[in-house]
Amino acid sequence: METAEGVVKKFCYMNRKAPYGTIYALESLEVVLIAAAFDQDISLVFADDGVYQLTKDQDTDGIGMKNFSKTYSALGDYDINKIYVEKESLEERGLSVDDLQALTYEDEDDDWAEKNSLFVVGREELTALIDEQDVVLSF
């Protein structure tokens, strides 16, 4: 792809680690929030222990760390609305989509209708999705 001004690349943010035990989940989110300003084609992937980043009811009061999980629900306001969770990773961990936050965005092309932005995808679909990316940032 030509790297001229105005080029739009497919950026994938690959999240594979649980939150709090290491800083990767939080600092990945910080990159994504900045990236939103660059008008690139952004996808977020949560696989392996990364699926734990999206659990609802996170409560960090007892560990003295900031609970940043609410930020995920704000991603829709940043036009980040392609959030993929690997189905097999959920299943292997005894989780289902009901254990995760509901993530939505308002579609400006559809009278600001509220739409789902979290998609549970199978291994094959995720494989194809990763392969079509121009840039993969792993956290």
Binding site: I130, Q133, D134, V136
Partner: peptide, 8 residues
């Protein structure tokens, strides 16, 4: 290759 995915 067209991109690099580092598995970290």
């Amino acid at each position: 290759h067209n991109a690099v995915q580092s598995w970290l």
